[in-house]
Nucleic acid binder design. Structure first.
Length: 154
DNA sequence: GCCAACGTTGGC
DNA sequence: GCCAACGTTGGC
């Protein structure tokens, strides 16, 4: 069982959008970064816990909790000529991009990026590092416990 | 809207 | 393999 932080632009899929989807589940398609892909393909397991992070918005930060609800499988959008995620180099036999499904667990009182930065216990978090752009990052179990114990208010 | 940081591409 | 150019991310 691992812990992750996954970024989503709320204008794309917000924590409330996720809560209202069928099965409260979304296919995490469209990741086109190799490191993020490798995390999904090689390390994520069904049941892994996810901090659902709102990025590129007025108050960036953790907006909810989710879980990985499927193993990684080929991202369908790479084969779709009409998708902005179409990849001409990907084939059905050798897919290049993968995604998992992510299921809503709960919405929380948002924990802003500024709030996260206030805690020395979290200073190692990838999302707090300068210049960080990776949309999927592992979360240390100690960091996860700290966040749940001290920062999550339902 | 600005711009720093980063990943990718492609010429050589 | 180097590296400049380019496109994207995402906080502010």
């Amino acid at each position: 069982m691992r812990y992750w932080l996954m970024k989503s632009e709320p204008s794309d899929v917000s924590i409330d959008d996720l809560a209202n989807l069928p099965d409260q589940t979304v296919a995490w398609y469209g990741v086109r970064n190799y490191q993020a892909r490798n995390f999904m393909r090689d390390q994520m397991c069904k049941g892994d816990a996810v901090l659902f992070y709102h990025s590129n918005c007025a108050v960036p930060g953790i907006a909810g909790i989710a879980r990985v609800s499927s193993p990684a499988y080929p991202d369908a959008t790479q084969f779709d000529r009409n998708s902005k995620y179409f990849d001409p180099k990907a084939t059905q036999e050798t897919p290049r991009w993968f995604n998992v499904d992510v299921q809503w667990v709960k919405k929380i009182e948002p924990i802003s990026l500024a709030e996260l930065r206030r805690h020395p216990q979290l200073e190692g978090m990838r999302v707090l590092q300068r210049g960080n752009r990776l949309s999927i990052t592992p979360v240390d179990p100690a960091e996860w416990r700290f966040i749940l114990k001290h920062l999550v208010r339902d």
